[in-house]
Design a protein around this nucleic acid. Sequence first.
DNA 1: AATATTATTGATAATTATTATCATTAAGGA
DNA 2: TCCTTAATGATAATAATTATCAATAATATT
Lengths: 125, 125
Amino acid sequence: MSTRNTKQKEIIFTTLCELRTHPTILELYEAVHKKESSIGQATVYRNVSKLVEEGKILKVLTKDGVDHYDGDCTQHSHFMCKVCHRLIDLYDINTDSLVKQVRKDYSLDIFGVHVLFEGICKKCK
Amino acid sequence: MSTRNTKQKEIIFTTLCELRTHPTILELYEAVHKKESSIGQATVYRNVSKLVEEGKILKVLTKDGVDHYDGDCTQHSHFMCKVCHRLIDLYDINTDSLVKQVRKDYSLDIFGVHVLFEGICKKCK
DNA sequence: AATATTATTGATAATTATTATCATTAAGGA
DNA sequence: TCCTTAATGATAATAATTATCAATAATATT
């Protein structure tokens, strides 16, 4: 026996997938807590870490000092507004040429790329 | 009078520029402390924040849960080894086409791009 | 289906990271 | 040189994360 599928893990995962707001741990905990008030913070921390390790969810790298999470693991990039700090999904941004270039120029084994664009969103402009 | 140029700020900045290891705050503090043992942690925290705001140093986004800092603000990307967690600088990785694409497809104002490649470095392979 | 094993949980303590406070110091304009 | 006040150093306060541990529940075995 190694890992078990618990109700809590399932709820945490589906809640993150439903939210399309790239929540922080705390925001995710609050959403989870609304569904199942018995689930504690520690359980959210634990399962989010596991899910990231398993590659089922994504940790989004931002400069606002807090980690955000994303239930959408399909290849896409992010944009963060410097004013409202909202994260926006960017699809169809092709990073293959970059990866190819790094592989060629630096001969490194690459598994993933994370691209974060920074700027000002339409609403804040 | 608004901001002052203090010895401490100068030492923190030059120490980071000398280090090419992308240190964390704590690692930077230790290096700074060796030079000037009077400089406290709070001062390092304060000045690193200021320097990032001023655009004189860079916060490097990684997935290892700790923030790293870089004194080299010229355009370059980073590679993080999943095994040893070492950050490697990647120069001449052209991101212009990506930025152009996002501007076109999403009509967003973009100021900066951060690219992090993940994989296994030569030593760990 | 009942039982045994043990991974996971919830609650909370402990730890770590970051920020705020405040008297003192020193940068830089007058 | 004096004055003003931003910045410092020390430390307290707060916030974020991880560890602990008895109780629970998932699942392999019988």
